Amino acid sequence: MQTYFITGIGTDVGKTVASAIITEALKADYWKPIQAGDLDNCDTKKVKRLVSNTTTKFHENSYTLQTPMSPHAAAGIDGITIDLKKIKKPNTKNNLVIEGAGGILVPLNTKNTILDLIKPNYKVIVISRHYLGSINHTLLTLNLLKEKGFEVALIFSGNEHKTTEDIIIKMTNVKVIGRINEEPYFDKNVVLEYADKFRDNIKSF
């Protein structure tokens, strides 16, 4: 069984929809270690609404923070300090999809970042969305992960931007699992379509 860590080049790039698609494609378990803000409509609930299969188990957050901010700041408002020892991977015999928060250098406390949640045996899938500056953010993310020795693949999110995508692929030579287009909406059927489309590329990564 494999563990897939889903991260992005920043916030609001499509990590949660991508996590739902990957979870559905593999009928994997899903876990969001740290949820900051939006607790009534958290990412776990969003993925649960988008997944059709009955195999997936949704594991509890290690930390649920009240404020939609960087985890270190949200934890400070709640009067706590995030402790990596309390973030324990769920026990499962299934594939596991782990969704990060923001990008890989988002701080958890004064010493640790999201990167410290990624174990050496995890496969990392980076979600990249085009905006001014996204090439830089994508290259920084991919290159740091590769330098740390992780197996890395890429999913593009949003409308195609050929010159951006071509240079990222050429400069990093990472596997591209596919593209999640700018859909009018995402529901279980749309997620299922993408899951079918991406499944072989995810499994071969």
Rank of each mutant, 00 (worst) to 15 (best):
I80K: 13
F198A: 07
V106N: 02
T3R: 14
T172P: 03
I177C: 07
S70T: 12
L142M: 10
I202H: 01
A74Q: 05
L132G: 09
T64V: 09
T23G: 06
K146S: 13
I22T: 04
T67R: 13
D196H: 14
L84T: 02
I77C: 08
N159Q: 15
L144N: 04
D12I: 00
Y63R: 05
L145C: 11
V97A: 09
N53E: 12
N41S: 13
S19Q: 01
Y30F: 15
D196N: 15
P71A: 11
A153W: 08
S134E: 10
K15D: 00
I202R: 11
Q35I: 02
G76M: 12
G76D: 12
L140G: 09
R199Y: 09
I9V: 15
A20M: 01
D200V: 11
K57F: 04
K170L: 13
S134D: 03
G79Y: 06
K57D: 03
N189T: 07
N143R: 15
N136E: 13
E151M: 06
I177W: 05
I21T: 01
I167W: 12
E24C: 08
T3H: 08
A36L: 00
K111N: 04
K111C: 07
D43Y: 02
K88E: 11
P68H: 09
V124K: 03
E60C: 04
S204R: 12
K45P: 01
V17L: 14
L145S: 04
N136Q: 14
A18E: 01
M1W: 03
G102I: 03
V176W: 09
D40R: 11
I114A: 01
H161M: 10
N136I: 13
K162D: 11
Y4G: 07
K119A: 14
N91D: 12
N41W: 05
D187A: 10
E99R: 06
G76K: 14
D83W: 07
L115M: 14
I169M: 13
T81H: 02
G149F: 10
K15C: 05
T3F: 08
T163I: 14
G14P: 00
G103S: 13
